[in-house]
Design a protein around this nucleic acid. Structure first.
Lengths: 231, 231
DNA sequence: TGTACATCAGTGAACGCGCGTTCACTGATGTAC
DNA sequence: TGTACATCAGTGAACGCGCGTTCACTGATGTAC
């Protein structure tokens, strides 16, 4: 009844790993980043020590959750942005913003884990760097296309040498060559994007902004204009 | 040797409360928002139950810390901004930004407590609202002065009714009457300001931006221009 | 096709730790007469 | 100025809880001959 005996155990194992991560993810809600390995195990009706067959320590489980969160956000953004008409740069930007926000509202605790205060005592390993940069790569590709199509103009601007160098490094690390003047504007909008989501999610604008959908869209449209994507 | 016997105990008590808060503040660094009442007590060489003479519970101690953090930031910003020439609106904004950033870098764990991910299971009481709004009030006063002096212009802009209402409410809650078009720009800059600090403090721009001083100043200057404070 | 052995998942008890909070208590400091 | 009493700070033991991790073990599933 099983196709490949060799992979039965492997498949069950993979499923179990998923189940453990899912249970742990659920517990992020109540315990925050102070993730409890025991609580997750209890949910699955297994003894806490059994988890060690799958993850060598609590921190490794946390790392898996973080990587998965980044990948999930990255994939969602890539997928949503990819279906927008390539020439509509403004809409590509707006869809990127909206997707990031929608993902964050859906999975607030994973947002907190990845974009909120760092977990005390936890040092993220290098494996998280690549997935973490996926959303930013989407922005970079929009900027690149804008340059290529001649929509984004490089208005001259006084930028200190140190910052020039930093921004060149950002471009280069992605294998891109967006001019620093444009990248500076892009980063500004990027910062406001995440600033907005943090404000909303962490309750810093409660009792002030009621219709966050409308407010967010308004501000992200202004960002598009600022970057120069309104063409 | 003591001036007023009636207040000796009161004064010692007040000092003790300060000592407990200071010890607790130190422990925010290692334990994060998951503040340990016992650890603080140990530092002071006292038994954990003694803390209950001063704070009815751990959460009340946490609340005291949060309120103090907001007040400390608010006072720092007010003090720094107050000595800038009133007519130099751009510098008033920049000093506000720089002071907020400097405070955050000095007290990263208090920043995380107030502007980072919410503490799971902790519900901030209403006492925190007033101190929390002090920094924003400084921005509002800059905007108001800008309007009064005719420096800030209200460029017509399509703003949805819901957002208009929300922004009017923000103004009104402060007893101010900054036009919504100007306030929208102010809030955008405000969001980018805190977005930047969060990115820096939470390590989201590590290995990319080396000279954060220069980068921050550049972006905040752009914000000033955007708001219309460059006059 | 059947047997012998190796691999692996999961158990349950235990270690040693830290936590918030309660409670009856001891002494010292302040207050009233 | 001195005594009697009330107030208060701080102690130390205890309760009941949860945590991450280790370890010797049982049994089931897979592999090799």
């Amino acid at each position: 009844m099983i196709e490949k005996t060799g992979s039965l155990r492997a498949r069950v194992r993979a499923e179990m790993i998923e189940d453990i991560k899912t249970a742990a993810r659920r517990h992020l809600a109540t315990e925050g980043a102070n993730l409890s390995l025991r609580a997750g195990a209890r949910d699955l009706g297994m003894v806490s020590s059994a988890v060690y067959r799958y993850f060598p320590s609590r921190d490794e489980l946390l790392t898996a959750l973080i990587i998965e969160a980044y990948d999930s956000l990255g994939a969602a953004v890539e997928r949503a942005e990819a279906v927008v008409t390539r020439t509509d740069l403004k809409l590509r930007w707006l869809v990127t913003c909206r997707t990031i926000r929608a993902w964050s509202l859906e999975r607030p605790h994973e947002y907190a884990l990845t974009y909120g205060s760092p977990v005390p005592g936890y040092k993220a390993p290098n494996d998280t760097i690549a997935p973490a940069s996926r959303p930013l790569l989407v922005l970079m590709s929009i900027l690149e296309d804008g340059i290529e199509r001649g929509v984004l103009r490089t208005e001259p601007r006084r930028i200190p040498a140190a910052t020039r160098a930093d921004l060149v490094k950002v471009s280069a690390s992605v294998g891109s060559s967006v001019p620093v003047e444009v990248l500076a504007r892009g980063m500004s909008a990027w910062t406001e994007l995440f600033g907005n989501i943090s404000f909303e999610l962490f309750g810093r604008l409660q009792n002030t902004i009621d219709d966050f959908d409308a407010y967010f869209d308004l501000q992200m449209r202004a960002c598009a204009k600022r970057i120069g994507l309104s063409g």
